[in-house]
Structure formats: C-alpha cells, structure tokens
Design a binder for these strands. Sequence first.
DNA 1: CAGCATCCGCCGTGATACTG
DNA 2: CAGTATCACGGCGGATGCTG
Lengths: 121, 121
Amino acid sequence: MAVDESCPVCRTAEVVCGKWTLLLVRDLAAGTLRFCELERSLTGISPRTLSLRLRALEEEGIVERHTYPEVPPRVEYALTEKGRALLPLVDGMRAYGERWLARRCEDAVAAALVSDVAAAA
Amino acid sequence: MAVDESCPVCRTAEVVCGKWTLLLVRDLAAGTLRFCELERSLTGISPRTLSLRLRALEEEGIVERHTYPEVPPRVEYALTEKGRALLPLVDGMRAYGERWLARRCEDAVAAALVSDVAAAA
DNA sequence: CAGCATCCGCCGTGATACTG
DNA sequence: CAGTATCACGGCGGATGCTG
C-alpha cells in the first residue's frame, strides 16, 4: 500500500529515506564530486547502488550531472537548488542525532574503559 | 552492510526511515492517542505493523506507552521529550515537501482542469 | 573511469485470522 | 479493545563480472 501522498512530510520522507540518499546530499553539500570520489567517501557502497541513487536523485531534480566528453570519461555531480534546500533538514537531523542518539561504538568504548578501570581497581 | 554509525545524520535517518514512523510522530504530536485511534488516523496500516512500529519507537524512547488495567483494555501512546524533539524536524520536512514536492494528485487535477478549459475554448 | 547486467538475500510490509 | 500468529511478497541493497 502506498503511503499518504497528501502528507508533505511523507513526500519528503520518501525522497530522503533511501539508505544512502542523505549521505549523498551530505557529501555533495561540500561541492561538486565525481563518481569515484563519491564511491570513496561513501564507504561500502556498491557502484550499482550509487548509480541507482544518483539517477533517482537526478530524476527528482535534487542532483545535477555534468558529463565531460573526455578520455577517460569524467562525470561530475552537484546539488541543485532543490537539493541545497535539503541541507537545513540534514543539519536538523545531525543536531538531533548528536543530541539524542549516542554513537554506539563510542558508548561501547566508554563502557569498556569504565569496566576496565573497575576491573583494575 | 550497515550504514555509517559515526554519522549523526544517518543515525537519525535510521530512526526516522520506517514508512510509518513519521506519520506516528506527526499524529502523536497532537497528544495522547489510543491504539485504535492510531489505526484509524494512519489509514491503511495493519495492526501488525502499527504494533511493531510502536514497539520499536518505545524501545528507542521516542514513544511512551501507558496501560490501564481495565475492561475493555485501554492503552495510550504519547511522545516523550526525545520524541517531541523530532517535531522541528518533522516541520522542516513538511516545509520542504510543500515548497518542493508537489502533490501528484493535485497536479493531475490542476492539469486536467487546465486542459479541460483549453479543450472547451 | 563510469557505468550497466545479472543474480540473490534480507527485511519491512501487507493480508488474514485468531486471542486475552 | 489491543494486540499476536502465520504466511507471502516486493523492493532495496549487496556481490560479481563486463563494457565503452
């Protein structure tokens, strides 16, 4: 069943909810990047997924693609105005994550340190 | 492959990315609601999914559950402080959706009207 | 370098029926 | 009323290999 189209919150959620979408926006916020640069900055993404996400964002008008007819081929990606309009949202999510969602590995490290100290004492 | 835990944006995205999650937060923003009320306001959700989402949000401390030992049973759900902290984000998404993501059916209706008028002329 | 083709597994979700 | 149980499906994402 399709999600409620009449809710603007949900329309935004649909755009933004891909696993890698926000990471792409985050990385492109700094400026234009090439395919391989995105591949490196998004550790672990498969070229297939990156390609699919970029194409989807391009179709939604959030990302612009510029192709340079060179050898070797060069393609650069950048945010459009519609894409940059997502940045305040991304900042809001960053703020929420930092305030309310502890980083698990940090917690684990902290807990480990505490228990180590306790064990040593 | 797990998404980058070190990125607070992504941690927030993981919390928020369930299909119904934001709708739940949106509806609970108005105040405490019962299971059946949520079932009605989230048109089309199955009780299974509603139950799963509520439990997940409860485990993350975003939603509080209050059970009343009555017959018939009554259970109420409300946002916690951590849940209410999501509201500015929801507002931001609403603003983005309204500004940048046209409602498809409205567009269709508008387009139909335009073409009808054109056809009548 | 920038991708597409193919195959496959997982998870969220949906439908339906049933219980305390 | 407030769920749980069970079954099934679709789509996203991952892995690998190949092309212009």
